[in-house]
Nucleic acid binder design. Structure first.
Lengths: 191, 191, 191, 191
DNA sequence: AATGAATGAGGTTTCATTCAT
DNA sequence: GATGAATGAAACCTCATTCAT
């Protein structure tokens, strides 16, 4: 039932999606929606929350099956992200295209995602035996990674001929090189 | 006068910003807003459009003064981006946090930004004498770059103690290394 | 419920009647009006349309019960017209005083009225074995008949002491004489 | 200058005609309109009043030049009415199609018209040496005459190929026969 | 004298939300 | 328990009307 809500939210955005349309699409009556979710925001939250959970679960499983190498874990997690996006276009639209600033109650979910990426980055850095980075630096890079991931996924929506693996690799090749380059900066940069 | 509109749009988002509030914040009456901009969408468009123009102008000037090296140009442009964001928080919020998919008439502006980044990347690759990339690959990386830039800027809003230069460098060091790494991939990658 | 709408429309005219007032007069809320009729124009149309239908139905029944003589039919129809006006002052005001040129969707109703009168006139002429009239002539006379009927009804509103039969006869005596006179013009007309 | 106001009023009706449009059509500024006419209603009144005056003046002159016969006078006045309508379509639309119930201040003008017709009818009846009619009867017939005239003029707008004389004669032949018939009713009417 | 610029007041319309059945 | 019917509140927008230049 959240399924249909997500579809409508993805299509029209939060504000232009009317409870009437959602109720009709879900095949139930409006008062039912209210009895289950309390309000429009409640419904939205329920949908976004569930989607986040699914996404994170998918990533968790992929990471868990990826062996001990932090780099392999980041690769697996990123790949899982794109697999999820590929299979849940609506959810991606609602989660990442709709609102830049997730309403207070959703912030934790987004934070978990960022922390996860940050943790991977940190371990990679440590494994590379480079000088350690500040937490802020790592957090910023994790955000950058997620932003790049989001944008490539966005771009993917208009280039559906590519596989999840292909787009995942685009991000990974770029991002991994970036991290490695930060670990061992080249001695001289010609301006 | 667009100034105040932007402030309100940034605070509440397009939908929850009421013309009443904008008019009051701007110190004029609602009919004036309509006489100048025709509609709420017209006002929004005017603000976003002007902001985009300022941002792009800033980037253009920085790039023009950066010498012939494509890498230096990308650095300069990226730096200008953060300078603009630092000085126009409201505009940044409205331009990049509000809507994932800019309404039809605004698409060209966003496209110009992406093309600009893509062009820089392409030249860097060519200068590195690496094997050329497909246009799709370049476009995707340009989007990734912008997405990372957006996210770091977003993160910056919550860490205002950093200078524009510092955050700019974070993106640049990471991104440049990524591009360079893609040009000359390391021979072996331990999985 | 259209009842009250008609009352308000009759009193203020279409433009100066506010949906607020109609809703209050009808004892329901504005959104109900919109849920039933879609828009102010929809409400207006519904009222006018229903009124036209009632009027025409009344005339039809009277004509059907009037025997085969075309003159008797015209008398009966005209009488029914005044009976309706007498019992539906508001409807008359809205139908015939408000707008000279009924909006596109209402034109057919008015046309039916005019055609009906024209048909009666034509048969009377034919029965009188006068030389036939052109369709344009008949159409113009039908309009004249309706215009005279409307004006007498209008005048009746300020002279409510008369019965429907009395005013009906005024029109009929005058109009019938006019038609008959046209059928058999007097040989000489002193200028 | 009233000329243009009339044009706009005729085209859009009183309510949908905006002062902006009238001012622009007249080539002056809105504050000028207000300085001359005080309000929208004032402007409307000025236009309608002037038009009525012109119409009545035209009728007066025609009647004055028509000789002593009351019937000839009615013919001349009616003809003048159609001449005026033919030459002032806009004025006709505003005077007779717009509002069934002329705002208080305009009632006298319309009344003068009705009285004039009523007086002619009365004299014709007297000249015919028929039994006199009640004032109410005469007033009603005068209204009927005007209503028929209005409707035929209305119909004329859609049949502009006819001359003013032709449509005028249609009304006169019918109406005169009606009056004469009322003076000397036929002895028997076959039902 | 003449106007561009400004506004107060009010209209239609839409929804998230809740009764009464 | 489930819903059709109902509504309060507010949004956008327009226009007759006036002020300050």
């Amino acid at each position: 039932m959240l399924e249909m809500a997500g579809r409508v939210f993805a299509q029209h955005g939060f504000h232009d999606a009317s409870m009437d349309e959602i109720a009709e699409a879900a095949g139930i009556s409006k008062p039912m929606l209210y009895s289950y979710f309390g309000s429009k925001e409640g419904l939205y939250f329920a949908y976004v929350n569930q989607s986040y959970r699914e996404l994170i679960t998918g990533i968790d499983q992929a990471v868990a099956g990826a062996g001990p190498s932090p780099e392999a874990q980041l690769r697996a997690g990123t790949h899982a992200y794109y697999v999820y996006v590929g299979e849940h276009r609506h959810a991606f639209r609602v989660l990442f295209r709709e609102m830049g600033d997730p309403g207070g109650e959703l912030a934790p979910q987004r934070l978990r995602l960022a922390r996860r990426v940050g943790a991977s980055i940190e371990e990679i850095v440590r494994a590379a035996e480079a000088r350690p980075w500040t937490p802020a630096h790592i957090a910023a890079l994790a955000e950058a990674w997620l932003g790049a991931a989001r944008s490539i996924a966005d771009w993917w929506l208009d280039h559906p001929e590519l596989s999840a693996e292909a787009v995942s690799d685009m991000l990974l090749d770029f991002g991994m090189a970036g991290i490695r380059g930060l670990c061992h900066p080249l001695p001289a940069q010609p301006a």
